[in-house]
Write a protein that binds this DNA or RNA. Structure first.
Lengths: 205, 205
DNA sequence: CTTGACTCGTCTACCGCTTCACGGTTGAAG
DNA sequence: CTTCAACCGTGAAGCGGTAGACGAGTCAAG
């Protein structure tokens, strides 16, 4: 840089808003590589506010704020192209739309990973044992709940509250236990009834 | 192809082992694109056994068998380079090693996805509510267990029994609630201690 | 012999970077 | 003033796995 001396080390600010960084300092600050910043500049995600007379990139606190949002959205898994349009758009509707979409993508990726895990475990011949390691079945849950002092009435109340407070999660939970759809529907229906007008029902987990 | 007539439609086999496919038929059979097969050929994962005099690729049932293994390993998420060396190696130790490694990778990817999900939900402001449709967070579970009549002591006993009867599932369950690894470790340690020598511990879910 | 459906090999693009190559700038030391 | 190291710039290529476009060759049927 030249004698206008705009560039300062971030550790020694002279005037309150005139703190600026070179590309490498900026990269270290965010734990990313210089190349990544060059790439972000090239695709228009983050173009530094200024250049020195020699053409060096100069990042200021405005760029810091933008980079913090980029980092956050990246940790949500949003694509850089999407991040750019979100940052360049006005309201937060673009952001919300992108996040809702991302949520559905994550769900799909979870399912894809689970499939890969099953195939892998099958190939290893571990299907029976290892699958048990990380998933409880109905009997397992009953055993745990019983061992911690719950009786059948407690378990029924648990279903009722589960259905009342989080019906979607209740469904997902029962399915995850490998219970067949018909019985899932039966348990949920019975839990809903009991939630409306309390009467005894035979539903251990 | 020429008058030796090696190529037949897969639906009309004349001699028992002389069934052969063009690249596009082969691609359709496995639900992949021609480009993919060209790529597999170029990197040596699947080179068709023969060519016609005009240079057309000819896939036979030997190639079908190889492709079926490729497809299987791909569904486990193994990289193509790894698949090639597995197919070209002798025993099944290379396969087992690759699968064990893949299992650990899948685990890491699950955790990464879970982090992305949490960031996304936080950004959507949904963190306080019942997380996603089919996943409960810690507060949700506490609420349900409390509503069904469990107090903190019951919940602690529940953790202890969970840890004792199904430690792997306990780990998986806590992670699925989005609890950070350090706290997961703390809860499990506390549950193990209490399982050995019963003393009171402050661990609601 | 023409038509139309196939095939060929090669090239480009996607994602989010990383690495390399080559050269200019800067600041400090000798 | 020279030299050196450390920085900076641009541009291109590469990763994996797939999709698609291109012009040209090939095949079977009419």
């Amino acid at each position: 840089m030249t004698e206008e001396g705009a560039l300062e080390a971030p550790t020694s600010p002279r005037s309150e808003t005139q703190i600026m960084w070179t590309i490498s300092q900026f990269a270290r600050r965010f734990g990313i590589s210089r190349s990544t910043l060059l790439y972000y500049d090239s695709i228009g995600v983050l173009a530094p506010s200024a250049r020195t007379s020699a053409g060096y990139r100069v990042y200021d606190d405005h760029d810091v704020a933008r980079m913090e949002r980029i980092d956050l959205y990246r940790r949500a898994g949003l694509p850089l192209a999407g991040i750019r349009s979100i940052l360049d758009s006005e309201g937060d509707s673009a952001l919300r739309d992108a996040l809702e979409l991302r949520l559905r993508e994550i769900d799909a990726e979870f399912r894809g990973l689970a499939m890969q895990q099953r195939v892998t475990l099958d190939l290893l011949g571990k299907s029976a044992e290892a699958a048990e390691e990380r998933r409880l079945d109905k009997q397992g849950w009953v055993a745990i709940l019983r061992a911690s002092g719950m009786d059948e009435g407690d378990m029924h109340r648990w279903h009722v509250e589960f259905e009342r407070l989080a019906p979607e999660a209740h469904q997902g939970f029962l399915v995850s236990l490998g219970i067949n759809p018909a019985e899932v529907a039966r348990i949920r229906a019975s839990s809903r009834e009991a939630g409306d007008q309390p009467h005894a029902g035979p539903e251990p987990v």
